[in-house]
Amino acid sequence: MFYKFAKTVVHVILAIIGGRFQVQNKNKIPKAPFVVVSPHTTWIEIIYLGFALYPTSIHYMAKQELFKGRFLNWLMTHLNAFPVNREKPGPSSLKAPIRLLKNGKVVGIFPSGTRNQSNIQLKRGAVTVAYKAGVPLLPAVYDGPKTIKELLKRKKIIIRFGDLIHLNESSREQKDILEEKSTELLATFDTLRQEIKTMKK
């Protein structure tokens, strides 16, 4: 209930101060459960991805520092977020998202948008979660303002979804599947960005 209330309030505020919002390829969104993955470049992206998937709720993977203190812990929990140690992600980090997916929920994972080795590992973590839970990956990219100042200039905001990445293969080694699908995910992000850029010309 709090998630829906907060979503409505924020949506009204951003509709007033923000620019036009467009969701592209919404027909690619499957029924839950699935993992939605987007290269994280700004907190604004996370909010608009929630709008793009509504009324489906996203359970966000968030760094554990955001849960420090009673109020922040309460707020993040009621916004459907769960903590993870992003500096040292380990097997225990997979338990919460896999449990949510097994219960028919949608999990959102937002590694940083660069291609350095640590972020490749985080993207591989998203693939691992989807693989172990037996659900598809839904790639998405955000194009729009990165700061409040840019948001107030009412720049157009786009969320573009890509084709589902399925991991239900059993004929090969897990390591090979995760490696291949992680590479495919990175390539899909690049393709989606290029498609947006082409349409804007």
Rank of each mutant, 00 (worst) to 15 (best):
K153T: 07
R86T: 00
A96W: 08
I29N: 01
T8P: 04
E45A: 02
K156H: 06
S182N: 08
T198Q: 15
G108L: 00
L164Q: 02
A32T: 10
L100K: 01
P145Y: 00
N116P: 00
P39K: 02
E173Y: 08
L101K: 04
T42E: 02
L138H: 11
K123F: 04
K95R: 13
K102Y: 04
W43V: 06
A96C: 09
F67C: 11
E65S: 15
P111T: 12
I148G: 06
N116W: 01
L164C: 07
A62F: 12
E195D: 14
P145F: 04
T188W: 01
V10D: 00
A133H: 02
K26M: 08
I47A: 05
K200S: 14
K123N: 12
A133Q: 12
T114L: 15
A32D: 06
F21G: 08
N73M: 07
L122R: 00
H78K: 12
R160P: 08
K132W: 14
Y131C: 03
P111R: 05
E195I: 07
N168E: 14
H59W: 14
G134C: 09
Y3V: 02
M61P: 00
Q22N: 04
Y3Q: 05
K26H: 12
A15C: 14
K105E: 07
K200L: 02
L79I: 11
A130C: 15
K197P: 08
R193L: 11
G144K: 09
G50I: 01
I13Q: 12
F110S: 03
I120G: 11
I58L: 11
Q24G: 13
A96K: 15
E87R: 11
R70D: 07
E173V: 08
A6F: 04
I165Y: 02
E45D: 13
V10K: 01
N103D: 14
P139R: 02
L164S: 03
T198Y: 15
Q22V: 14
T41W: 08
T42L: 02
V9W: 10
A32N: 04
K7G: 13
L66W: 10
L185Y: 05
K95G: 10
V84F: 02
F5W: 08
T56S: 06
I157N: 01
I196P: 08
L122F: 14
K201H: 14
A62W: 05
N119C: 09
P136L: 05
M199G: 14
R86L: 01
A32I: 05
A140W: 02
G162R: 05
I29G: 04
M199P: 09
D143H: 09
N119Q: 15
S118T: 11
N73P: 01
Y60G: 12
K102H: 00
K146M: 10
H40R: 01
K88Q: 13
V23K: 01
K201Y: 10
V36E: 04
I44M: 04
I159K: 11
S93H: 03
I196Y: 03
K63N: 12
K88N: 12
L192S: 01
T198V: 13
I13K: 13
L72S: 13
R115D: 08
P89W: 02
I44V: 04
M199L: 10
L152N: 13
A62T: 13
I196T: 09
Q121N: 13
A187R: 12
S171T: 13
P39N: 14
P83S: 05
E180I: 08
L186M: 09
G90R: 07
A96M: 05
E184Q: 14
I46L: 06
K155I: 03
A126W: 06
D190Q: 10
F82Q: 07
A52G: 03
K149G: 05
